[in-house]
């Protein structure tokens, strides 16, 4: 077969070693990861309280939920043109895309987890005289934690996918950029190296989240 269409495994391994030695690959992995962490952290910081408020306040649900459901079907890629206009090329579009991509899984799973709490547990907490803060910290939060962590895990995964799209269009570093530029240079072997790394690193992150989840919700 034409090696441009599908290079041999040996060629891919050689390309991998090359990129590793030059330090390019590790830098790209670092760049992509840090962008994902930045956008994801923003999502968690904004999305977690928003999910809580949506679940606990009918008024907020009534006014914010339609907006969320309207924005949700817009794929992260569709935001690229706007984010480039607003932030220019570089990290701006990548941060916003990873944030947009992880925002909905985070908000919706927090919301889901909190609204599904057994009302009897809330009754117990109220009957024992727990303050609102105590109910939030010691009942609502731990009860919803399994869903919340699932939301974080899914959100991180979608952010990882979104950063590739952002880098292919609006950046000069990262695994997404590596794939894009290698395609332009007809280096299919490097494209494959990039794809394998995206898959493998994404897998490692997911495993790490799973371990954290198992550690924090031992009781389930």
């Amino acid at each position: 077969m034409n090696p441009f269409l599908l290079p041999s495994p040996t060629a891919v391994v050689i390309a991998f070693i090359e990129l590793l030695k030059s330090g390019e690959l590790l830098l790209d992995i670092w760049e992509s990861s840090s962008r994902v962490f930045a956008g994801f952290a923003l999502s968690v910081l904004i999305g977690t309280p928003l999910g809580l408020v949506l679940a606990l306040s009918p008024r907020w649900r009534w006014s914010v939920d339609p907006l969320l459901q309207f924005l949700r079907p817009i794929p992260p890629i569709a935001w690229i043109p706007l984010t480039i206009l607003w932030f220019g090329l570089g990290n701006g579009p990548a941060y916003s895309l990873t944030m947009i991509a992880s925002f909905f899984p985070v908000v919706l799973n927090v919301y889901f987890g909190v609204s599904r709490i057994d009302p009897q547990h809330l009754d117990v907490a109220r009957a024992f005289g727990a303050t609102a803060g105590q109910r939030l910290r010691e009942v609502i939060w731990p009860a919803a934690l399994p869903s919340i962590l699932t939301g974080y895990r899914i959100g991180f995964g979608t952010a990882w996918m979104a950063v590739m799209a952002a880098e292919m269009v609006a950046s000069h570093t990262g695994l997404g950029y590596l794939i894009q530029v290698s395609q332009n240079m007809l280096r299919t072997d490097r494209v494959l190296v990039g794809m394998v790394c995206i898959g493998f690193v994404g897998f490692l992150f997911d495993r790490a989240f799973l371990k954290l989840q198992e550690h924090w919700v031992r009781w389930a």
Binding site: D123, F128, A143, V217, W219
Partner: peptide, 22 residues
Amino acid sequence: NHALFPWATALENVEFALRARG
């Protein structure tokens, strides 16, 4: 159905009631 908090150990369940009392 006892309505214990499943995320808390036996000890933590009891501790909750005490903390709720201040």
